[in-house]
């Protein structure tokens, strides 16, 4: 039986998958801390979920690039919600990048949010969970991390880095009973994919959130969302380089 969480942090909770995961966790009875930059979005979500009788949702406006704030904020949150069973790192950016564009500012932002922010938050989580010998760390990566592809060099790099980091965390703290889950979604209908045209196998955000929560609570380690991507990327990973160089997807 999947084990439900009583307390969780969702980083990147103001829209898309993070928001939906937070909403579904609250429905399960979990107390959730929402972290993202846009305070008004976080408040909108909190207002729709909190009731006069019960405060289930707590909001913390924060830019994951403010790395030095993380240790204090992390303990403020666990103090406020009275514990921590799981952390879901869903913050991510994927600016549009032209085929001939090498914009360092955009690239740096992706590394800062998708990788360094994850490290700042999940290092705290790993220490805490390692000490208390339990807990679940969920990193929302992407199928994009499976290969370095033509349209998004640094986005792919950021997700590959995140995958390797999560794997290493698992090898460090898994032995103390901590679960580390690497989630690799394909296209999901969220603000990130708005305006990107027709995407293959696009799934609605509530389905993605449901699959992510189920898999993480059932102790899975590597999760493709939806599952079909596991097989598609098994093939893609095995395309020889000389063929891959000719492709533009």
């Amino acid at each position: 039986m999947p084990s439900r969480w009583k307390t969780a942090i969702v980083v990147g909770a103001s829209s898309g998958m993070g928001e939906e995961i937070a909403r579904q966790l609250v429905v399960q009875g979990c107390k959730v801390a929402l972290v993202a930059r846009r305070a008004e979005e976080l408040n909108r979500i909190a207002q729709s979920l909190n009731t006069a009788q019960e405060k289930k949702v707590f909001t913390y406006p924060h830019d994951v690039g403010d790395y030095t704030q993380v240790p204090a904020l992390f303990q403020q949150i666990t103090h406020d919600i009275g514990g921590l069973d799981a952390i879901i790192y869903a913050a991510g950016v994927m600016p549009s990048v032209q085929p001939n564009e090498y914009n360092f500012e955009k690239d740096r932002k992706m590394i800062e949010v998708n990788v360094l922010g994850a490290i700042a938050w999940l290092n705290e989580a790993a220490q805490r969970f390692g000490q208390s010998q339990g807990g679940t760390i969920v990193g929302i990566s992407s199928v994009a991390g499976e290969r370095g592809r033509y349209p998004q060099p640094v986005y792919c790099t950021s997700k590959a880095a995140l995958n390797t980091y999560l794997e290493a965390l698992r090898n460090r703290v898994g032995r103390y009973g901590v679960k580390v889950v690497t989630v690799k979604p394909g296209p999901v209908d969220t603000p990130m994919t708005k305006g990107l045209g027709k995407l293959p196998l696009l799934i609605p955000v509530d389905r993605a959130a449901r699959e992510i929560i189920n898999a993480s609570q059932s102790g899975k380690k590597n999760v493709f969302v939806p599952g079909i991507w596991r097989w598609i990327f098994l093939i893609i990973r095995n395309i020889p380089s000389f063929v891959f160089q000719k492709l533009k997807f």
Partner: peptide, 26 residues
């Protein structure tokens, strides 16, 4: 005022339980 939290060393963190094993906290 709710107290302002400053971080404490994770080395101090432990799971502390009720004798009856009916609840535990960090």
């Amino acid at each position: 005022t709710s107290p302002k939290i400053l971080p404490l060393s994770w080395d101090r963190l432990e799971r502390v339980g009720a004798w009856g094993m009916n609840t535990s906290v960090c």
